[in-house]
Simulated assay, not measured.
Amino acid sequence: MFPEDIQTSAASVIQAALEAGVMVSTAESCTGGLVSGALTEVAGSSAVLDRGFVTYSNEAKTDLLGVADDLLARFGAVSEPVARAMALGAVARSRAAASVSVTGVAGPGGGSADKPVGLVHFAAVGPSGKVVHVERRFGDIGRDAVRLESVRVALGLLMEAVTA
Rank of each mutant, 00 (worst) to 15 (best):
S101C: 07
D114N: 14
P116E: 09
S150M: 05
R95T: 07
V82H: 08
G52W: 00
E28Q: 06
F53C: 07
V134T: 15
D69P: 07
T55C: 15
G111C: 08
R95G: 10
P116T: 10
V146G: 03
L148R: 12
S99K: 08
A73D: 15
G109Q: 10
A96Y: 08
P108I: 02
P127Q: 13
S99E: 11
E80F: 01
A38V: 01
N58F: 07
A98I: 05
T8G: 02
V54K: 09
D50K: 09
D5H: 09
G107L: 00
G118F: 02
S57L: 14
G66V: 09
G52L: 03
S79T: 11
G139Q: 12
R147K: 14
S12Q: 11
R137Y: 08
L88M: 13
K130I: 14
G37Q: 07
T8K: 14
G126E: 09
A113S: 14
D5Q: 10
A123Y: 03
A87W: 08
E41S: 15
A87H: 09
L65K: 11
S9T: 04
A92T: 11
V78L: 12
V117D: 00
V125A: 11
V100G: 03
A98H: 07
V102Y: 03
F138H: 12
T103M: 07
E149W: 07
P108A: 09
F53G: 10
S45E: 04
V134R: 15
V120A: 03
V48C: 05
T103P: 13
S101Q: 09
P127C: 12
R93G: 13
A27Y: 01
T26S: 03
V24T: 10
A145G: 03
F138L: 13
V91S: 06
V132N: 13
Q15F: 00
D140N: 15
A11G: 04
G104I: 02
V42D: 04
T103L: 10
L34W: 02
L148Q: 12
T40Y: 02
V67H: 01
G118R: 00
G129F: 14
S94V: 12
G44V: 08
E19K: 14
F75Y: 15
A43L: 11
S94C: 14
K61E: 07
V13D: 03
K61S: 02
D69Q: 15
V35K: 02
G89Q: 08
V42M: 06
S25F: 00
R93Y: 12
E4I: 01
E59P: 01
T26R: 02
A83G: 07
L39A: 04
A83H: 05
T40W: 02
L39G: 02
T26P: 01
A87Q: 09
V131S: 11
G33H: 04
A92P: 07
Q7D: 05
